[in-house]
Design a protein around this nucleic acid. Structure first.
Length: 541
RNA sequence: GCGCCCGUAGCUCAGCGGAUCAGAGUAUUGGCCUCCGAAGCCAAGGGUCGUGGGUUCGAAUCCCGCCGGGCGCGCCA
């Protein structure tokens, strides 16, 4: 039996549908929450949707389906006050208030908002994956925030997540890094005669040059610089509260022969050809825009090959669900990687891996767009953001928009500690509810009579709390962590509103206990939600 | 030019497997602290959901055209 009344209702309708209209048995029975309370707690428009196909009057169909459904739902009278057919054929349901309150008990149990799975899936999540050629930029920050929240969300649904960071530590850009540091050591500056063509101009190159104590040997400089920058990125990520389970080095794909192996497999597949001295793969056969070069005419491989090799290791390591989080500037790679994996003929499905693409972040400060930072040169760093507004605000802000929406980060708004800042709004709600508990001894609200909670705000709050597990589940399923921040804001709003309207610590002991139970549920839900997105839940501010 | 994404209140954005979907925050204006935290609450004003068609009993939501913006279209990574 489904766990909540909405799902039980949906089940009942599905069963009814199978009898009444078998040809539409697989119809998705959805319930919405009406904006206007007088329309009840759930509304269903199935009759309107099916009326035409069945050539029946929507209101009559609603009535017929509903009576058939309720015949499959013996506990309906316990769960609901009743239903009504409204307007052109909506079916509105009114929940039994006691049921809304029951959610509060669940909210006080361990694991609130989490789901269990019989067979947990192993999910691999790759994000940030910054080249070790400079400090992390704000886009990496967005990825880190999204990826980490997504990992928490997926774990909350009972699956296992491996958080992985892929370092492109081989190839031309690393060579540029080494040359840039070497040039700085020799006293050259960007733009000087002899400065490398695609050298890195940021001031951090000078820092590395100053810190380096070895010889002028380029290999040695390269190793030092990569190591230096990886450490620096690690420090930023640690401060951001993001950790990884696996750091995968591109260079290892070369040293252990995986790149060679992939090239051989591609050639063996018969999908390659030689043109202009280069080896090409017919990725167009797998939906790519144009064929891709595998081996350049100079004998070296394009980055496409290690990319495919890397994703092959994900498959071989047993990950059947793989999600890559990338900026839209890597849009082109998705079709290519998928096509490459297809060409291997290794039984990898066509849509593998999944991608979450996020668009760019612009940073506004003092009414102007900030485009550069001293240290990195041409871009604003994650470190800049952390220094300006702190971890919680950076996390919350970067998660307050859909991933594929352009995002303007308003530094001044995030810095505001006094009023208009949404991060503090939610955190303040948590601190406020905590403060109630610091002012009372009556902590024994476990046996509180929840039925004493009868006013509208209390029922609304209880219902909002009850929605939490569903919100979390959907955010995990849709890969949309931003919906957690929106949920938290509405929950905080409802709590603030309640707090201003009613006194929690009333003289009546029974009522006080009931209200404390409600507050405890609010506290738990706020804390759980904030924890999912990696934002702290302070008890005092 | 081609592909993907995006145009919703002054600003930043939710909603987009159609209906009960014109929303939030912020900004503006006016109220609320002898009483659990005013980092809060209550209220008002503010939008032809880029635009033109189409499908539908019904479209911000689905389809097509157009306009505007982003990203990508290397033997770079």
């Amino acid at each position: 039996m489904a766990s909540d009344p909405k799902a039980r209702l949906a089940d009942a309708y599905r069963t009814a549908l199978a009898k009444e209209a078998p040809e539409h048995a697989d119809f998705e029975v959805a319930f919405e929450k009406p904006r206007q309370p007088e329309h009840g707690d759930f509304a269903c428009s199935i009759a309107l949707q099916l009326a035409k196909r069945l050539k029946r009057n929507p209101r009559q169909l609603a009535e017929a389906l509903t009576s058939a459904a309720l015949a499959n739902y013996p506990d309906f009278k316990q769960d609901f006050l009743g239903y009504e057919i409204a307007g052109p054929g909506f079916i509105n349901f009114r929940l039994n208030p006691a049921l809304k309150l029951a959610a509060l008990r669940h909210a006080l149990e361990p694991g609130w908002g989490r789901a269990r799975k019989e067979k947990p899936e192993s999910v691999q999540l790759e994000f940030v994956s910054a080249n070790p050629t400079g400090p992390l930029h704000v886009g990496h920050g967005r990825q880190a925030a999204i990826g980490d929240a997504l990992a928490s969300l997926i774990e909350s649904q009972g699956d296992k997540v491996t958080r992985e960071f892929y370092y492109n530590d081989a190839g031309a850009q690393i060579q540029n890094l080494a040359l840039s540091v070497q040039s700085r050591r020799r006293g050259l500056k960007p733009g000087d005669a002899g400065w490398p063509q695609d050298g890195y101009a940021g001031e951090y190159i000078q820092d590395i040059a100053d810190a380096y104590g070895g010889t002028d040997d380029l290999d040695s400089i390269r190793r030092f610089a990569v190591d230096y920058l990886r450490k620096e990125q690690d420090i930023d990520l640690r401060e951001f509260g993001v950790r990884f389970d696996v750091y995968y080095l591109e260079s290892s794909l070369y040293s252990d022969g995986k790149v060679e192996e992939v090239v051989k497999a591609l050639v063996a597949s018969g999908k390659t050809y030689v043109k202009d001295g280069a080896l090409w793969l017919r990725t167009t056969e797998y939906g790519d825009d144009k064929d891709r070069v595998v081996r350049k005419s100079d004998g070296t491989y394009t980055y496409f090959v290690p990319d495919v090799a890397y994703h092959l290791t994900k498959w071989r390591r047993g990950f059947r669900k793989v999600i890559n989080i990338q900026g839209t500037d890597h849009m082109g790679t998705t079709a290519r990687v998928r096509a490459g994996l297809q060409a291997l003929d290794a039984g990898i499905p066509a849509g593998y891996p999944d991608y979450v693409m996020h668009s760019m972040v612009r940073v506004m400060r003092g009414g102007e767009e900030v485009k550069i930072s001293k240290r990195a040169g041409s871009y604003v760093t994650l470190r800049d953001l952390l220094d300006w507004v702190g971890r919680d605000a950076v996390r919350f802000f970067l998660l307050s928009r859909r991933a594929d929406a352009d995002f303007v980060f308003d530094v001044d708004l995030a810095r505001a500690q006094t009023d208009e800042n949404p991060v503090y709004y939610v955190q303040y709600a948590h601190a406020r509810v905590c403060s109630v508990f610091s002012k009372t001894d009556s902590r024994d609200f476990a046996n509180a009579q929840l039925s004493l909670l009868t006013n509208e705000r209390e029922l609304a709050l209880a219902q909002r709390i009850g929605e939490f597990p569903g919100v979390v589940a959907e955010a995990a399923r849709e890969l949309s962590p931003h919906s957690i921040t929106f949920y938290l804001r509405s929950l905080a709003a409802e709590f603030h509103s309640y707090y201003n309207a009613e006194r929690i610590l009333v003289d009546d002991e029974a009522l006080r206990a009931a209200r404390l139970a409600l507050c405890a549920a609010v506290r738990q839900t706020l804390a759980s939600g904030l924890s999912l997105i990696g934002v702290s839940a302070p008890e005092k501010m």
